[in-house]
């Protein structure tokens, strides 16, 4: 056993594995053919000026791809697990939410767009305060993200699109570092919608985003003053101002579960709906537990690659 361990550290394959994360960055990821395939998937709904009914612009996404590629491949070295064949019909991804700034949404969307078969554009449902922010709201809209209103979600699902929801909402994204990977309570809205529109749910767990922006304290009153969901204090924020909110380059794993199907009455009592919500929540919790176990102990967990 001891010998093996010694072997492991001295032998090069693991170092290679570590370095290969960075090599991915140099590989041409967003080749034109792939881009066209992804971006044309919703072409039927584009208007004469190239925008979909929710303001998404494939031409704009094309410009953003290099940046997302950098984040996905080089910065967070994302590894996906369990992302197999995807149905081409309506689909709802349900994920844990973390990291103060909704990077997890961008990374899941990138994973589905790059590694999904077929690649799909994932529309994530954003917080209610986002549309009032200049530039941010515009950027998100053009990238295909949509205000998380039940009406909007229903409309997208009825168009057979894939959406991403975070039932933890603000509770998840604004939790402190000490509560990392503690799944918060789920809302029931997503389940009612899934039942009503007969949409399969894909549970997702994002591992790593939690350490990317570790919040030590949340100034609630200051957040309320600014109209933001939270005002986190991290080791670098607000000391380095905006730069301090820059997430740390933590290795990110994204775990996907098998699609889950639910039936029933969407207007059922909360108790009945809660049973199904709990099924999804425990599935996400399982994926988180598995992901945490597999990525090993600190600091390898956040560096990735080398395992003791």
């Amino acid at each position: 056993m001891n010998d093996n361990q010694f072997d492991d550290i001295s032998s090069s394959p693991h170092l290679d594995e570590y370095l290969s994360q960075f090599e991915d960055w140099f590989r041409d990821w967003g080749d034109k053919e792939w881009e066209n395939r992804v971006l044309s998937s919703g072409a039927a709904r584009l208007n004469e000026f190239g925008y979909d009914p929710f303001g998404m612009s494939p031409a704009f996404i094309r410009k953003v791809i290099p940046f997302v590629r950098f984040l996905y491949r080089a910065y967070f070295r994302v590894t996906t697990h369990g992302l197999h064949e995807l149905p081409t019909t309506r689909l709802m991804f349900v994920s844990n939410h973390s990291g103060q700034i909704p990077l997890d949404g961008a990374l899941i969307a990138a994973a589905v767009a790059v590694e999904g078969r077929p690649p799909r554009i994932l529309r994530s449902m954003v917080e209610r305060w986002v549309p009032s922010l200049p530039f941010v709201s515009l950027f998100m809209t053009r990238c295909g993200q949509v205000l998380g209103d039940p009406d909007n979600s229903r409309r997208l699902l009825e168009n057979d699109e894939a959406i991403l929801v975070f039932p933890e909402g603000v509770r998840g994204i604004s939790k402190l570092y000490k509560d990392r990977y503690k799944l918060q309570e789920f809302g029931t809205g997503f389940m009612r919608l899934a039942v009503e529109t007969r949409t399969p749910i894909v549970p997702v767990a994002v591992i790593g985003a939690e350490e990317a922006v570790p919040a030590l304290y949340n100034f609630r009153w200051l957040a309320r003053l600014l109209g933001a969901p939270s005002f986190p204090i991290t080791p670098t924020f607000p000391w380095l101002l905006g730069l301090g909110l820059l997430p740390y380059p933590v290795k990110v794993h994204i775990w996907f579960g098998e699609p889950m199907h639910f039936t029933g009455d969407p207007d059922d009592e909360d108790e009945v709906i809660d049973l199904n919500v709990e099924k999804v929540r425990s599935k996400v919790a399982q994926l988180i537990a598995r992901g945490l176990e597999e990525r090993g102990p600190f600091p390898f967990s956040i560096l990735g690659g080398i395992r003791p």
């Binding site: 009914p53 929710f54 305060w129 549309p131 009032s132 709201s137 205000l147 209103d149 009406d151 409309r155």
Partner: peptide, 9 residues
């Protein structure tokens, strides 16, 4: 309004 759904019925 910022929190309007995309299409109002």
């Amino acid at each position: 309004r910022p929190d309007n759904p995309q299409y109002l019925t």
